[in-house]
Design a protein around this nucleic acid. Sequence first.
DNA 1: CTGAAAGCGCTAACAA
DNA 2: TTGTTAGCGCTTTCAG
Lengths: 324, 324
Amino acid sequence: MSDVAQAAGVSSATVSYVLSGKRPVTEETRQAVEEAIERLGFSLNPVARSLRTGKSTLVALVVPDIANPFYALLARSIQDELRGRGYHVLVSSTGARRDEEEAFLREAVQQRFAGVVMTPFRLATDAFDVLRAAGIPAVVSADVSFGEVDLVTPDAETAVREALAHVAATGRRHVGVIGGPRDAAGGDPRLERVRKYAAEAGLSVAEEHVVHGEHTREAGAEGFERLMSARRRPEAVMCGNDITAVGAMDTAERLGLDIPGDVSLVGHDDIDFASLVRPRLTTIRYPAREVGRVAAELLLEQIDGRTRHRTVRVTADFVARASV
Amino acid sequence: MSDVAQAAGVSSATVSYVLSGKRPVTEETRQAVEEAIERLGFSLNPVARSLRTGKSTLVALVVPDIANPFYALLARSIQDELRGRGYHVLVSSTGARRDEEEAFLREAVQQRFAGVVMTPFRLATDAFDVLRAAGIPAVVSADVSFGEVDLVTPDAETAVREALAHVAATGRRHVGVIGGPRDAAGGDPRLERVRKYAAEAGLSVAEEHVVHGEHTREAGAEGFERLMSARRRPEAVMCGNDITAVGAMDTAERLGLDIPGDVSLVGHDDIDFASLVRPRLTTIRYPAREVGRVAAELLLEQIDGRTRHRTVRVTADFVARASV
DNA sequence: CTGAAAGCGCTAACAA
DNA sequence: TTGTTAGCGCTTTCAG
């Protein structure tokens, strides 16, 4: 930068101001500086800038598993929103492990990230206080609140009731649930919603028909297997997400069980592939792109100075296909 | 850091050396420093460190589309390999657009990234010279070479021959191809391989049976439609990747075409969902996890000083399922 | 074995 | 409208 300054016959401060536009510069000097920049092929060093300003251009997206298409799409959406504003997105998969989640939070303050978008799974509810204390904008995408942080969360009440009614309409009475891990922070809202609205649809959820596991294909396969070996099988299974539903399908196939003939299956998220598996997966759609858009917007608002935290609900919709 | 130094009654240089271990420190001072670090909750500022050393801890992964499960898995694999070594992975989707690809390369030198792993699509063959000039390690994951850069590339000859033989064995003679974009850098090696080995399997690839498009579901759907409206339909279609194959399935379904009854379909990559669509997709497996592992390894070798560039071939395997 | 001090490249007071 | 300068937090040479 001092090279540029010298070449343009000005001080390095002026070069800085030409670049940032933070104070007026005569057309003349601007021209000279820009010409020198061009000629020398100069470009700002973002690292030095970060050190000086204490702010980086890095936004971390922390999710349980980037290989889950829901999060992959979320990542693309957030990236698309933020790139134009000059931010870079760092993606991290935690494997839904608490130590990893905590590690990333620490990393975020250490690296002075410009912001963090996270789907936490096992974090303590006050875990985001450290970000808040460090003045790092954060937004959480989750079913439950994590304290005083921006939250984008599904509004899935109606969708769940519709799903349940739909299941009931096919004559099923006993529904099982493949829930998330037992030790997830904030419990298991997706499971609780099913419990809450089952009765009004004339459905029952027996305790032995509730299994827990990670949100992975393998865990879905296992969970479904346990459900199918219950003394009395559930006639329909609500899955924590589409990936576990796919796992359930793996098992159903292995066991020679017909879906939906023998058991109905309902997923959650509506990833792209939900319509491609056979039978096509009936599911509750949670729009990853919109979630990403909203999260990015909330983050930018914070970066621009908003301090009071907001919660935005994104509507989930019931999508009837062929697995019920 | 100077706080720690003061608290421990040493100089900040000593604190630095305790942390880096780059020169001997008496057990005594080490203890004092570590105690002070602990007590003050100090942690190194990576930004300052980067500025001073000129090296960052950021590795960029640049792919056409992170929402493509192949790249998502690649991302996780690379991240898993690199995290333990202290690097962070920045993921960027370019949409396979040349300007985006170039923008990221520029960004990489500007930000002094520790390394770049990229799957370029429309870059000029010499585009990586700028990284080389800037001393930034790079590895390309692609079918074709991009000049003097480390390359991890599929060894798919055998798999393609097997696939073609398999298609021929079902009595098909005319095979079509849904290839990549016409203006992709390095042409379309996957298409060329099919052309090259078709004859030896007794198959023919008519010019009107070759269509081009992006590697997306939509493009796959369109391409397949064009193929199906040819005067004489191909009896089998080789797809650029599994995502385009899925798009082809969309169209087949809409057109009421049976797969493999009316047309056979062969994909490429073997993403997780290939075995879940119906019919299960016959495909050429290119192992994303291993590709990621190899790419990470090559990158680390470069970071550790290797300068001569290497090429590693990763074997692709033919996977027979139900779409042929 | 340890300390002093320069300097990475930038921004933002403060002065002019 | 422009320049001077301090300093962000670290690493590393040079002395001791």
